[in-house]
Write a protein that binds this DNA or RNA. Sequence first.
RNA 1: GCUGGCGUAGCUCAACGGUAGAGCAGCUGAUUUGUAAUCAGCAGGUUGUAGGUUCAAGUCCUAUCGCCAGCUCCA
Length: 636
Amino acid sequence: MDSLHVTFADGRAVDVRPGIRVVELAASAGAKNLVAAKIDGQLVDLNRVLDKDCTVEWVAPESKDGLEVLRHSTAHLMAQAVQSLFPGTQVTIGPTIDDGFYYDFKSDHVFTPEDLESIEKRMQELAKANLKVTREELPRAEAIELFGKMGEAYKVEIIEGIAADTVSLYRQGDWVDLCRGPHVPSTSAIKAFKLTSIAGAYWRGDSRNPQLQRIYGTGWANKKDLEDYLKRIEEAKLRDHRRLGPALDLFSLHPIAPGSPFFHPKGTIIYNILIQYMRDLYQRYGYSEVVTPLIYKTDLWKTSGHYEAFHDDMFLMNVHDGEYGVKPMNCPGHCYLFGSRKYSYRDLPIRFADFSRLHRFEPSGVLSGLTRVRSFAQDDAHIYCTPEQLDGELEQFVAMTKEVYKVFGFDRIEVTLQTRPEKFLGRIEFWDAAEAGLRRCLERSGFTVEVLPGEGAFYGPKIGFDFRDVLERSWTLATVQIDCAMPERFGLKYVTSDGSEAVPMMLHRAVLGSIERFIAILLEHCAGAFPLWLAPVQLRVLTVTDDHKEYAGKVVEQLKADGWRVEFDGRNEKLGFKIREAQLAKVPYAVVIGEKEVAAATVAPRRRGGENVAPLPVLEFANNLRAEVAQEMGQA
RNA sequence: GCUGGCGUAGCUCAACGGUAGAGCAGCUGAUUUGUAAUCAGCAGGUUGUAGGUUCAAGUCCUAUCGCCAGCUCCA
């Protein structure tokens, strides 16, 4: 065979000599500005040699694959820079992540923010030096010897874990790293990057292992994309609930109670509306709300299994006659409630809803605004049902979740199925049945699902509905979990149709998740501009001059009597100033009252954002508001 | 909890080891104003806290609390 048949992505085909390198093929095909190629669907270096008929697809730096390659190569460039500046530093792993990359190092030197600047500078020099990036393959044993000689203990450990006979190395200049690749053909292809932060990270992600130093960076195809990204991050910070919440006077945090938010009057309005919204849904979905104790003797959690698994995360206290604990979750209490009387299969399902405040002693390092707190409430409920009712209950939960998220406009949901962890309670056959039930439910739900093996709770598998905050961090809001342990541990029974006793199925579920976390995500989702039905202040009545205060006062009373949350701004200020303040406070409507409105007995509403509504009588305005709320809540 | 960074007025930020300052917010007064900032004046601080070094500490050191980024964990 003296020629190879190459087919391009656009359908064109050429015959080329065997042994041609991809980069030469690109040149002859007129393809420019490439970082890699896909041969038969597999991402490869441009220096790869062609030895058989194949299809070829070019990978531009801006493409998803291109950025992946580029960022990976940038991570290598960073590692090279770090090792040249700080001899003795060992490299470990350096993968790409969303928008960038990181590399974990073991070094006696402690990296500082100033170091990032010098590392960046060295990276730029190395990029400019246009070092050829070359791939070579080495037998496993030789690679182990090579990295062993270099003092790269972590790399040796990685290679020892690789099953293949040969491993691939990448060289650029005098620097070499173990890597699967592919990489850019030369360091000069790396044009736009920035090192962003330093953090600690455990080797292989295990806190029992040595802690490494991780340097994060972001990398892009060109300077403009980099600038755009940095700008996007800056803008996202403006939507951060930790900034917006206090600025809008919704909540605050004080060192006197770390991780335990104070909700101000305006934040409390939102808090209570969310709970009321769930209560209304509960009415429709057949839940029964209960109120249960906050503090229990620790025997409760010894029975449930939480004491052993959760001990360090609980607020415990010794009081007079023994050890008590503040509840970190509602389930054990609900089990007592369920067990306190005899239920028949005819009573099931029983759905106990509970908005109790929960306390968990989270490690100080994980506390963050409202997303990770030590004191919170959930729209929590536990469902006790027969095995036959399981699928129906799961289906109902998914329907409820979909209904809720539609109202809030949450569409970027990531659904995960989290299965049995290494440490678990209960019988394996329960777990298998439970996981099968969750899988059936998800298959019918239409969601794209990611399975996270071993990530389930210690008492059962779960489905998580995750959302991202403005900084792209993922948080679980809704969750449904099947309990494979607690009903049995608490000796729960119900009477079946044949008069015998059986252990009920138990589900844990929340739609909003923690109210605190939900408010955080909601706040960032709408950038503080809450929809009318949720806005803590829905209307602000503004006077043009003092002459209009009397009529405006009557309008305020009328609107309040009609159930609206109204503020009155009758200050001696210019209208423009008051409008500006209402706008900055993100009040949905500024209701302007001047001479014309007094004369015509109307109001002149201005929507948040600037749109003016034609003046109309107060009651008519209120009717329009009612219609707007109904539409927001999907009841129109 | 671990690693690193940061704590100055209500907020955003200044201040070489040498008298803690500005803008906004607040208060007082003037101005009576039509859809995103009227003007003037006043007040505001044990520089997170506790030690230490120094003639002198917001600045240097130690401890501690909190916050931020990430890791481990998690609604």
